[in-house]
Amino acid sequence: MELSSIKQQDNAIRFILSGVTPAFANAMRRVMIAEVPTMAIDDVIIIENTSVLFDEFLAHRFGLIPLTTDLDSYILPEKCDCNSELGCNRCRASFTMEIEAKDDMIVVYSGDLKPDNPVVTPVNNKIPIVKLAAGQKLQLEAYARLGRGQEHAKWQPVSVCTYKYLPKISIDMKKCDSCGKCVKFCPKCILEIKDKRLVVKDIEECTLCTQCIKNCPKKSCPIKVEWSEKDFIFNIESNGALPITKIVEQAAIQIGEKASELSSLMKNLE
């Protein structure tokens, strides 16, 4: 297994994972989407709401706010032994909000949620929740807990999480006269004519569309588009709840935990 060509930018990462099977690459993708735990608001107790949005609408919007997740000090409610409906300090974080529009219309932002634990806060303080006209009031308590994406998409730590095979383009220079027609037809502009020879500029951008072959004027096309089934280009984007490298790390840990659980179950059978 090898990691190469790592490009990280803010909340997005792109890397090539080599020497694995498609099954493993897909397992990583699915675990990142559905099984890496993150924090999200799950219970909202509305004390007063005279805004134009009804309670469920508000609760849904609160749920979708990504919260900074601390996986070391919080555990999943199903693994917690408190057995309480709203959870304990180990399995939930709480927020309060009390806001009233006095003389003018105001916008309620995610930053107006007051966290009890400053470690768990909204990733972005500028998400508008609702607008209040003068005289309208909002008072509520919100409880966040760890959860997994398979339960609800609000617990998903990633927005984009994809992989594709690493393309391989070979050009037979004996047959190619570098007419440049394929350069024009490539939708990703990855081919170019350099020193009167057709070359591949950025192989990672190739989408395997084969437009270069379809538009080649030659009877037998000198271009060959293939892909490697051992190398995968991963494209992952975090919504900020967890740092992007932590998501990949956690996904690998989750797969490992499942495997060790199975192995210990098998050991008990012996």
Binding site: L53, F57, L64, P128, V158, S159
Partner: peptide
């Protein structure tokens, strides 16, 4: 009504 918190398709904020 008011701008959705996330994109309906990809879940980006």
């Amino acid at each position: 009504m008011i701008i959705p918190v996330r994109c309906f398709t990809c879940g980006n904020v």
